[in-house]
């Protein structure tokens, strides 16, 4: 089974709020650059950039980071299964105010790998982290500076962030373990929350 934690309107409002927070805390909007972690993080970074452009009249550049080669779990079978993609940073990180963007913060290992990758592209002035969901269970001392939603889920559950560009629909879903792999976004399989979502936010 799968249950919906956030619907499409809520996802849109959440991203808008994150954009507001990023603008509010930026020292200079011109130095801001967003770096998404592949795959969903890149889409989220593009969305945040759109929102920042609407609110602040300046669109920060967006880069894409593939952290596969920086992971510490190659021996655990990551090698052949993960499809390696390209890193594409159309700017130098030197002196930039970088916002790293990912969909779900869980163990923190992806973020650690991303930080290791990032320093190869110049020395950023500052790096902060924005995530759509922080699900807890961190295994490294990593925290997010901008969080869309904190979710308290069991270790055997999986949090999925679906986005219109890749999945046809914006939603944040929690799945039970048996469906991890085959699950695609389909409204029929998703149980919408009965209680008003405002209460939990």
């Amino acid at each position: 089974m799968a249950r919906e934690e956030l619907g499409s309107d809520q996802v849109r409002r959440t991203l808008r709020r994150l954009a507001h927070e990023i603008i509010e805390q930026a020292e200079a909007l011109e130095d801001l650059a967003l770096v998404g972690i592949r795959t969903r993080g890149v889409t989220l970074a593009e969305r945040l950039a759109d929102n920042i452009e609407q609110l602040g009249d300046i669109r920060p550049p967006v880069g894409a980071l593939d952290v596969t080669l920086y992971r510490d779990d190659l021996d655990r079978g990551g090698g052949a299964r993960v499809r390696l993609q390209k890193t594409a940073l159309p700017f130098s990180c030197a002196g930039k105010d970088i916002i790293l963007v990912d969909d779900v913060l869980y163990t923190g290992r992806t973020v650690r790998a991303a930080l290791a990758a990032l320093v190869n592209f110049g020395r950023p002035r500052r790096v902060r982290l924005a995530v759509a969901v922080d699900r807890g269970g961190h295994e490294l001392p990593v925290r997010a500076d901008y969080v869309g939603r904190n979710l308290d889920v069991r270790p055997d559950e999986r949090v999925r962030v679906f986005l219109e560009e890749s999945d046809g629909q914006d939603a944040i879903i929690v799945q039970d373990s048996p469906n991890f792999k085959k699950f695609r976004y389909s409204p029929g399989e998703i149980e919408t929350r009965a209680e008003a979502p405002e209460e939990s936010s």
Binding site: L69, L74, D75, G77, G78, G79, A80, L84
Partner: peptide, 9 residues
């Protein structure tokens, strides 16, 4: 890269 990572499986 692939041949170094296979051992885990």
């Amino acid at each position: 890269y692939l041949l170094s990572g296979h051992r885990g499986e």
